[in-house]
Amino acid sequence: MNTHKIITAFAVFALFISLCGCTPDKTADTESCSKEIFAMDTYMTVTAYGENAEKAVNEVLEEIKRLDDLLSAGNDKSEISILNKNGSASLSDDSRYLYEKADRIYRETGGAYDITILPLMKLWGFQDGDPSLPTDRDIKNTCQLIGADRLIYNDGRLTLGKGQSIDLGGIAKGYTGDRIMQIFEKNNISSGIISLGGNVQCFGKKPDGSLWRCGITDPDHPEDMSKLAGTVSTSDKAVITSGGYERFFTDKKSGRTFHHIMDPKTGFSADSGLISVTIVSSDGTLADGLSTACFVMGQQDSVSYWRSHRDEFDMILITDSRKILVTKGLEGVFSSGNDFEIID
């Protein structure tokens, strides 16, 4: 036997092994695809794992563009803009679903979430990105246009009250998330996760079988990922947060800070004692609408609403005194470096 050949073979083998070890491919056994898109005035990332990952993600991007064109109140050609212009329109299936969901949240939360808030958002300048404090008189006058109870919905046709205009932006991203989950399912995706401008929705579990770990932004340090308010481990759920830190401005004269989540009743930024509301639900559209509604309602009303709908969602509330309240369904899956209280 030629021992030199054996030694040589061993050296070649060792070299091969050393090279393999340097570039581990963690996703070698699953196909994955991750793409991003700027749409709905925000930045979105879509990741899917599975044989049809790329096909599914491409379909998702098309669906996002379709819904953006259909629902955006800022796009003159959208269905919603045309409805706002004409005062009445027969709704498409997507808008119909969204309107019915919005109407349900409006009624169940005592008007805390109201799609007729658009004139107020425009008055404050939160619609075009250059906000400023309006006069009390203007706020009072604009408030008279607000009220989803004045909308008439009949046989799929929606008619607005005089001077009214609607914006489905408060639930459109949540709905888009739900549609994406349907596309993932249709394409047999094994696991997936999306962030639609910070609205997170996960499909299945992680490729390794563990739960997705979603970090909840600390309202005091919204840009610092090392200072999170906590984390939620979950699967097949939307995790959506509303916080006053997302969009705000400080009025130079009074020194007061105003954020973009308006209280339809006062016409001013909601001041309910909550600084962040996170909703965890398998229904992304509901989660999106409720995060706003609960932020406006405050702790007490949000908790009592949850008690009568606890099979549909869970939530994490952060108060202005930095107390963290977590509903029972998240016990064991929510963790935080700070103390938190479980609500039952």
Binding site: N199, C214, G215, T217, T231, V232, T241, G243
Partner: peptide, 11 residues
């Protein structure tokens, strides 16, 4: 890439 790393941030 430890187990405790965060997969995504909710804003």
């Amino acid at each position: 890439t430890d187990e405790n790393s965060i997969d995504i941030i909710v804003k």
